[in-house]
Design a protein around this nucleic acid. Structure first.
Lengths: 349, 349
DNA sequence: TTGTAAGCGTTATCAA
DNA sequence: TTGATAACGCTTACAA
């Protein structure tokens, strides 16, 4: 009674139960068994006498006991926590990854730590340093680190990389060719003959892949193609490119991502350029909001949620006893698909 | 030399340095001091002999030592980690909060754990249970828990609540009246005389506040006002309301949030209703994408980043030795402001 | 099946 | 200023 609400007068860390959380020792005392038995009962159900376990569970419930994950992590080394490092939480492309990763982690009873690198390799390294010791594995999404750095992290903890291929590591990659092929066919079918690619940052691995795929596919469908860039992967980056796009005299532009596509669309509208009749515009990722514009943005959809989800799943399967390093380390391709909206159409005759 | 790259043949957890991370014991041996001295040197710089400290630091650097945050957390109880529980990571309103919280936490050298409740009170309780033991404090954004539950959490760890007032707890709230006042004046000045509020979920504390504020402000400016709802706070929720909006014969609609406003805008466009001349539409939050539409959504901006940031700051200041419970527990109002875009305008004569 | 006891890597108390 | 040593709460051989 007396100690019910009485928060210990701060500074007196007495052993008096009431301020402190209950431990397995408290349960042991109540259930009249040894603490180790409590530990077993709680962490490996079924492996001890049923009646004893029942008694222990009852005591635990009565005390409103909850395991201390930190105390558990110390001897085992397992934290039941996963880390996710992203370049920029601001970027809507990230949202899907975070969402997918969080769900997959939660489903498996894991906790997710999110860290941001703010597009800086240095800050990313710091973030990794901070997070690494307390996670069982790490997902590097949109990393700005070098291959060597990434490998050295992989030597310390299991990691999975998204949107980046690193020899010898598991990476989750979009099947760029497929989506780009669909997009190029779509544009060719509409009657386009000249194409421009508005590229992203030159440090972006994925931007280079998209360009390569376009460069291979466009000629096959009888289209000319030029690269405009590199550019910042934001609305402004798209807007800023309008003059160069006009100067290129192409009928269709593929932007590095939807954000740039939307920025370009805006700039076009402002200049009185009709989209899609005078200029068709397409992007990548199918981010939240890319269907808000008028017209909506035609885009190559990358299943970002799935990327986050898969990354986590792979990480978790790594912990499984039967999984060998060999069967886990490889690239996983995510299927990409064209989403046709109003921003692409027949070029004006 | 020999053990440099030789990863222990897995399964043999020998004490052989090389597989295991270095500990303060390794440093102690190398610097020829007691482990406790190493601990002191590393965690309270300046409090020991400068030369000894120098020697210890050198040894630490040589071994590439990094503290084990878990081992540190066990005796101290401090984890240097903060938790953030949100209803739905999918909701763009959340993005700003997550971003602000992450930045504030990282600035202070804290790590952020994100958990999602999926709009369910039960799942939220589970998420809190899971996260609570390993954090120094918790931010509850858009919580669906009851006041009593929230208070009982507060008895275990410091918490801050966003978008919800709970007696006796620190909460970060938008100054609804201010933004709504600006919005209502704006609409009145444009010549509107009839208004509808498209409300959100009836469990949303903040939706009720918005309605109250509108109810108070509209008559003052000589406008009639009706409530339409409750509705789901999504695009579809907005779209679904179009019939009722038309039936209400109002010239302006204020939606619970931008998502609903955008959904409504779409439905209106589909029905050939001109926005804003036949119907003005406004929302709340100024989410990412609310300026992508044509016309852009007029909205009452809530500084979500700031909300997340402030919540974390308060949490951290709680830990400060001088802060008393009394001076920390109160409501913090965030200034809201009207952002005028094209979706509101003069009603057709 | 259960008890005993030795860690896990720190911090913190108390002597020296 | 530094060294022993006992926690912190749990897991896990090893014994009984």
């Amino acid at each position: 009674m007396a100690d019910e609400a009485a928060a210990a007068p701060n500074g007196t860390p007495k052993r008096s139960r009431g301020g402190t959380a209950p431990t397995i020792y408290d349960i042991a005392r109540l259930a009249d068994v040894n603490p180790s038995t409590v530990s077993r009962a709680l962490s490996q159900p079924g492996r001890i006498n049923a009646k004893t376990e029942e008694r222990i569970r009852a005591a635990a419930k009565e005390l409103n006991y909850r395991v201390n994950p930190i105390a558990r992590a110390l001897p085992t080394g397992r934290t039941n926590t996963l880390g996710l490092v992203v370049a920029d939480i601001t970027n809507p492309v990230i949202f899907g990854i975070v969402r997918g990763a969080e769900h997959a982690a939660a489903d498996a009873g894991y906790t997710l730590i999110v860290a941001e690198s703010q597009e800086s390799g240095e800050r990313e390294a710091t973030a990794v340093e901070r997070v690494l010791p307390s996670v069982d594995g790490l997902v590097l999404a949109t990393t700005r680190l070098g291959d060597a750095q990434i490998r050295s992290i992989a030597e310390r903890k299991p990691i999975v990389v998204i949107n980046r291929a690193v020899e010898g590591l598991t990476s989750i990659l979009p099947d760029v060719e497929r989506g780009v092929g669909q997009l190029v066919s779509h544009l060719a079918d509409l009657g386009h003959r000249s194409l421009a690619y508005l590229s992203g940052p030159d440090t972006s691995w994925i931007s280079a892949r998209r360009w390569e795929a376009l460069l291979a596919a466009a000629p096959e469908r009888g289209m000319s193609i030029v690269e405009i860039g590199p550019g910042v992967p934001t609305l402004d980056g798209g807007t800023a490119a309008i003059s160069r796009v006009i100067a290129a005299r192409v009928t269709a532009v593929v932007a590095f991502n939807d954000l740039m596509a939307i920025g370009l669309l805006r700039a076009a509208v402002e200049r009185g350029i009709a989209v899609p009749s005078q200029l068709s515009i397409a992007g990548f990722d199918d981010i939240f909001g890319s269907d808000f514009t008028t017209p909506g943005i035609t885009t190559v959809r990358t299943p970002l949620d799935e990327a986050g989800e898969r990354a986590v799943r792979y990480l978790l399967s790594r912990g499984a006893p039967h999984s060998t390093k060999a069967d886990a380390d490889h690239a996983v391709l995510m299927q990409t698909d064209l989403v046709v909206r109003g921003s692409t159409g027949h070029p004006a005759a």
